[in-house]
């Protein structure tokens, strides 16, 4: 297996974006020029430093409460990435587990999982998340839980059909005939076969989680309203977007770059992880 297969433009660009964001999130206090919560009421709605009227102390300007946009963006990565990692991983574990059981064993468990997926799919995901947050109460931990409860079906649906394909391969029957237990077949033959797809979906789901968190922050159902999160920033800046459009544009760009990074990574990983592309002599 050569590393060159992983050096495609998509993986390199996507990976670099995500790596940079992770670094920003970890070292946020060192990078941020100001305290993200500090309000400088004398300096509200400042434009970015390079624009006329900008102030070098606030590189990307300030919001309507005079808070430093650059610092809030930097700290916002923490919320976004925390939700992306935990919620997407949770949805992956739940969805993949159910998909493996349903696709491999079929029968009643498959019927149950499939009906559950059908029921979930008849909800627009945003609506289900909204209702869950009404029931569970607002908060970023609740948002994570809601994303897991809503989005496990994305994994279950796609991976179940992949398991059905893999299950028909003769090597699954061969493993049974070699004496493998069902559990061993699932763990050693089926799971490795669907793993590239799982990883791809995981990457895409991280992007989706970022969007859902921003959406819920925007509606005010996620973090506390003074916490620096991109959705909160957009909601705050929306009221003054005619005078100060950068307040909306900058967090939007942050969301865009994060989601783009996850999407590029996901798109790029699928072919790179596919062993059927590993051909003779290409070792």
């Amino acid at each position: 297996m050569s590393a060159a297969r992983f050096l495609t433009p998509r993986i390199v660009v996507g990976g670099a974006l995500i790596a940079a964001l992770v670094l920003v999130a970890i070292f946020a206090p060192l990078i941020a020029p100001n305290d993200p919560e500090a309000q400088e009421l004398l300096y509200v709605l400042l434009p970015p430093a390079w624009a006329p009227g900008g102030d070098a102390a606030f590189p990307l300007g300030t919001d309507s409460l005079g808070r430093c946009i650059a610092s809030r963006l930097v700290f916002g990565t923490r919320v976004a990435l925390t939700v992306a990692l935990t919620a997407a991983t949770g949805a992956m574990v739940l969805g993949t587990l159910l998909a493996l059981l349903a696709g491999y064993f079929g029968g009643r468990i498959d019927w149950l999982v499939s009906r559950a997926v059908d029921t979930w799919m008849s909800f627009p995901p945003v609506i289900l998340a909204l209702i869950l947050l009404v029931g569970l109460g607002a908060g970023v931990d609740k948002v994570i839980l809601a994303i897991i409860i809503v989005d496990w079906t994305r994994f279950a649906r796609v991976i179940r059909s992949e398991v059905l394909v893999v299950r028909r391969r003769d090597y699954i029957a061969a493993a049974r005939l070699a004496g493998f237990s069902h559990l061993a077949v699932l763990a050693r033959e089926v799971l490795p076969a669907v793993a590239p797809l799982v990883i791809t979906l995981l990457s895409l789901e991280m992007g989706i989680a970022v969007i859902v968190e921003a959406t819920m922050s925007f509606v005010g159902l996620s973090v506390e309203s003074d916490v620096a999160a991109w959705g909160v920033m957009i909601a705050d800046a929306r009221r003054s977007m005619y005078q100060a459009p950068w307040g909306v544009v900058l967090p939007t760009a942050a969301i865009f770059l994060t989601v783009l990074g996850f999407n590029l990574l996901g798109d790029g990983l699928r072919p790179a992880l596919d062993p059927s592309l590993r051909t003779r002599g290409a070792r």
Partner: peptide, 17 residues
């Protein structure tokens, strides 16, 4: 790829701008 990385409501804001 780029278009898919922006959710509807942010497109809405960008379109308004």
């Amino acid at each position: 790829s780029a278009m898919m990385s922006i959710p509807e409501f942010l497109w809405a804001l960008l379109l308004i701008l």
